[in-house]
Design a protein around this nucleic acid. Structure first.
Lengths: 163, 163
DNA sequence: ATTGACAGTTCTAAAAAAGAACTTTAGCGT
DNA sequence: ACGCTAAAGTTCTTTTTTAGAACTGTCAAT
């Protein structure tokens, strides 16, 4: 598997990993959801090298997750804002946060709380089924081939009956 | 921010990224959920170097996501199975898959379909609120400091009134 | 006696990331 | 006019990771 063509693999995990499967990228996206928008702000908050930050932002823009928007002329200055495509990553970030809350918190408890504006309560994200609305758990899901799957030819195998 | 201490940051994203925020690790976990268990199987399916695979599996075991279980003696052979903690990563993988399905699929459609055993239908994962059951979207969430947050002292700032 | 499976380890070369300094355009204070 | 600061990068060198391939040890089967 090559990184350069990972986004062309017949697997949605691989394709998404091509976009966000990188330590810095996930932390940059976290900050985007916290409304951080500017190069300097990302750099200061994360302690990422400027070189890498520029590279990651370029890639996120190329994948349509962020948009580079001028916020002033002379000198031209740009900031990075989540596109619809980027906002659609919210469930990914929320499920990552929730796993960390439950499995990596120390005695103090969780670092952040999330309030559901429309109901006004602090909540946990729950994965549910789009059809029946029931809770989804790992043991309750079956995987099938979909139309976009291209099966690679299985490797030739020497069997007792083959030459 | 240093990788070695990322799992101690006062942020659940950072802590989770310390465990899974790596291209190979996410692909390894995908395979784990597809019931791949053995070193050779991971290596063949992913094309990862054996060195890195050994390293990533060791780390996942250290973080309690996988368990290394002997499946035969003489010679001792081990396989890697998801723990409860690992199974709890299911929503993370499902939301990653779903984003890829929606935003990275080509004309053929999605590579895999998921069936909800208990209702029998192919479904999409939907993030909902644990309190009201309503759908969660990025624009509908407010973030607050939690008990586990440690704010870093803000950097000294030269202001007109300061010396 | 040889071959092959499996779960790794051990090398070297190539690629990526860290760390620090430098660039460019412009506003502000004196 | 002069120096200072800010923002958004780029450029450079050093260090760390990763890729790629070969090798090891234990056993079973041919």
């Amino acid at each position: 598997m090559k990184w350069a063509t990972l986004d062309k693999e017949p697997c949605s995990v691989a394709r998404t990993v091509a976009v966000i499967g990188d330590r810095w990228t996930l932390l940059i996206l976290r900050d985007c959801f916290l409304r951080v928008r500017r190069f300097e702000a990302f750099q200061t908050r994360l302690g990422i090298t400027r070189h890498l930050l520029a590279d990651r932002l370029r890639k996120l823009v190329a994948f349509g997750v962020l948009e580079r928007v001028a916020y002033q002329d002379s000198p031209k200055r740009y900031e990075y804002v989540l596109t619809e495509r980027g906002l659609a990553l919210h469930p990914v970030l929320m499920s990552i946060v929730h796993w960390g809350d439950v499995h990596m918190s120390d005695a103090r408890g969780r670092p952040m709380l999330h309030e559901h504006k429309s109901c006004g309560h602090v909540f946990d994200p729950v994965m549910t089924c789009s059809v029946c609305g029931g809770r989804i758990s790992a043991r309750d899901v079956l995987t099938h081939d979909g139309p976009g799957l291209i099966r690679r030819a299985p490797r030739a195998r020497r069997t007792p009956s083959s030459s």
